[in-house]
Simulated scan of single mutants.
Amino acid sequence: MAAVGGFLFGYDIGVISGALLSIERDFQTSDFVAELITAGVLVGAMIGAAFGGVLAERLGRRRSNMVAGVVFAAGAVFLGFVPDTDWLIAGRVLIGIGVGIASVVGPLYISETSPAEKRGGRVSLFQFAIVFGILAAYVVDAFFTGVPEGWRWMFALGGVPGVLLFVGFIGMPASPRWLVMKRRTEEAETVLRRLLPAEQVDREIARIKEDVARASSGDRVKLADVPGIRLALTVALGLAVLQQFIGINTILFYAPILFHHAGFKTDSAALAATVGLGLVNLLATLVALRFADRAGRRPLLLWGTAGMTISLAAIAIGFAVMGDADPSTSISKAPHTGHTPAAATHHLAN
């Protein structure tokens, strides 16, 4: 259920790509305003992520996920009725807050309610849910293209997974770790009996108490001071930061517009190509999840990075050589050939 938060994130990444085509026509927006509408969710996500940890500590992981669902659903419905672009930007920020909260508390809840041997696979479901949400948004965009003010429906339907996240968590157990932190050990034991074999419950409670006591005492080890860890930590943080600058977000957010510039004549054609992009994106994620343990993370990272570099270079060179292509010529579609490989190799690398 926590992975629904990942779906919300993915849906919001994908839905703006098709909605912008209609918004720009209905409101006659400038490129700058369109960029603000797109970026609003990212600003909101930064705010939500900053407060997500505080909510998780005070309200608990379960109720924090419910809060994220409410915020997202409210923002989605709000966007369905906004009168102008100012309110549209505000609504996107509101949705982003919900996404930011879910991106923190979702994986946290999954990790704290999963047995150690299954934890990695279950946390990976959050990433899969993101790309599935992107694909779902692209399909919704394609369905409502050509419908008068169809962008309102595109946004409003995003409230459905928000409601699902809220309702689904009503019957979910609280995080055992959070319960121990709040000195509700008996409740934590009850939850763990639902998650683990009976003979493992006492051992897990002891481990959680030890972790919580260590964190509370301030007896923490700085990873950067551990021999052999500093370089790995630097590389890991560097990858997390640099992945935000590789250009994949431009493709995911503006795919139909890019396909238009590459020579696709109609919104329907551009959005159909975008759905294909989302499908390849999903399949590449499945491949990465399937072979991460077999092939290893490093080879997938290296091959994915190489693929992204080549694909993005192909897009840049294609547009640089051909400019905004003439839709009447078949060769004008050449720049789009890098879009789908770029998305696919990005998720192999992730």
Rank of each mutant, 00 (worst) to 15 (best):
G10L: 01
I13W: 06
V15Q: 01
I16W: 00
G18N: 00
G18F: 04
A19T: 08
L21M: 11
T29D: 08
T29H: 10
S30F: 09
D31R: 15
E35P: 04
T38W: 05
G40M: 05
A49Q: 10
A50G: 08
A50P: 01
F51P: 00
G52L: 06
A56E: 06
L59R: 00
G75E: 04
F78S: 14
V82A: 00
L88C: 06
L88P: 00
I89K: 02
V93H: 05
G96F: 01
G98Y: 03
V99T: 03
I101A: 03
G106M: 05
L108Y: 11
Y109R: 02
Y109H: 12
P115L: 10
P115A: 14
K118L: 15
R119F: 08
G121L: 08
S124Q: 07
F126K: 07
F126P: 02
F128R: 01
A129T: 02
A129Y: 01
A129D: 00
I130K: 06
I130C: 03
D141L: 03
T145G: 03
T145L: 03
T145C: 04
T145F: 00
F155S: 06
P161W: 03
F169M: 12
G171L: 11
M172C: 07
P173K: 02
P173G: 09
A174T: 14
P176F: 02
V180D: 07
R184P: 02
E186F: 15
E189Q: 13
V191T: 12
L192N: 00
R193M: 11
R193P: 10
R193S: 13
R194K: 15
L196T: 07
Q200N: 10
D202H: 11
I205Q: 02
S217F: 07
S217K: 09
G218E: 09
G218L: 04
R230D: 15
V235M: 08
L237W: 12
L237N: 09
V241N: 11
F245W: 09
I246P: 14
Y254N: 12
A272Q: 14
G276Q: 01
N281Y: 00
N281F: 09
L283V: 12
L283H: 03
T285D: 09
A292E: 05
R298D: 14
P299Q: 06
W303C: 11
G304C: 05
G307C: 01
G307H: 08
A313G: 08
I315Y: 04
I317P: 03
G318R: 04
F319E: 02
A325C: 02
A325I: 03
D326V: 02
S330D: 15
S332T: 12
K333H: 12
P335N: 04
H336W: 15
T337I: 15
H339D: 13
T340P: 08
P341A: 06
P341M: 02
H346L: 13
A349F: 01
